[in-house]
């Protein structure tokens, strides 16, 4: 079997100095602070944007960022990782159903923050579990992301049918109690998530780097967002989550993310170490 290897002209590799210049430019011109993003992955994203926009040099990139008004939304859209899926890590959702949701049920009114919600797939997964537990009507889910285009897409509740089969599989593995197809309506190449799953969700822009506490929550989900931050910024985000949680509130993070490297770990108990579910104890 033969494969055509793409023999494209390689853009010049980004050195630290060039990266720093780009970060500073974005900060002063557009108000987004990427200075404490993890260097390895952020460099890859910038290189990807350059490749997509067919920019050959750092100079060209800086020119576009400075002079082309339409360029920044494109840059932001591609610099952030907008890859997500419904019921990603089904084992996590199963643990959440078994260990967290029964505790949430004891509150008269439940406030949840889904930070870094991307295009909403995981938010709607959570809505489904809350619905099945009979809690959705007394929940409010605040779903935030730094990318306004993601939020627009998330609000529509429209997904492509392409991945629904995978999602159905995930839903079953996550211990879903109903028929997954009850939760959406399919037409042509798209599905729309049922209205009842969307009505208690508020989508809003929030940047974990610069914005602060805006409410108090019983559950905060922030999965696979902090992998893009360096340790300094991770610690800031953990502080923010700590201060946004009610006493004995829950925090969930991505399967390979860790609280252990942060000084805040003493203020949390592991509810499920494997699924990265923690509880504020202090």
């Amino acid at each position: 079997m033969a494969f055509a290897i793409n023999m494209k002209i390689e853009p010049q590799p980004l050195n630290d100095e060039a990266l720093q210049e780009i970060v500073t430019l974005i900060q002063t011109q557009h108000g987004y602070d990427f200075s404490n993003y993890a260097k390895a992955s952020f460099t890859r994203r910038v290189e990807r944007v350059m490749e997509l926009a067919e920019l050959k040099s750092v100079y060209d990139l800086k020119f576009q960022l400075t002079n082309n008004k339409q360029f920044f939304p494109f840059f932001l859209q591609n610099i952030t990782v907008n890859v997500t899926e419904m019921f990603r890590d089904p084992a996590f959702y199963k643990e959440l159903s078994e260990k967290v949701i029964p505790v949430l049920a004891t509150y008269p009114y439940i406030k949840i923050w889904h930070a870094g919600c991307s295009t909403g797939e995981e938010v709607y997964s959570l809505s489904i579990l809350l619905k099945e537990a009979g809690l959705l009507d007394r929940c409010k889910i605040y779903a935030t992301d730094l990318n306004p285009l993601n939020l627009e897409k998330a609000k529509t509740g429209i997904l492509s049918t392409k991945q629904m089969r995978d999602y159905t599989q995930n839903y079953l593995q996550a211990g879903g109690k109903s028929e997954f197809s009850n939760y959406y309506t399919a037409r042509y190449d798209s599905v729309i998530i049922a209205k009842e799953l969307r009505k208690n969700v508020v989508f809003s822009q929030h940047n974990l780097v610069t914005d602060g506490v805006f409410n108090e929550f019983q559950l905060i989900c922030c999965r696979n967002v902090m992998i893009y931050f360096n340790r300094h910024l991770q610690n800031r985000a953990y502080d923010l989550f700590y201060n946004s949680l009610s006493h004995l509130g829950f925090l969930t993070i991505g399967a390979k993310e860790s609280l252990l490297f942060s000084p805040i770990k003493q203020k949390f108990d592991a509810v499920s170490a494997a699924s990265k579910i923690y509880r504020r104890i202090d």
């Binding site: 390895a40 992955s41 890859r44 994203r45 990782v81 890859v83 992998i227 893009y228 991505g254 390979k256």
Partner: peptide
């Protein structure tokens, strides 16, 4: 990914 020689860095991109 490698964040310098000191630590790993994970990435959930495409």
């Amino acid at each position: 990914l490698f964040e310098g020689k000191e630590s790993f860095c994970l990435d959930y991109s495409e």
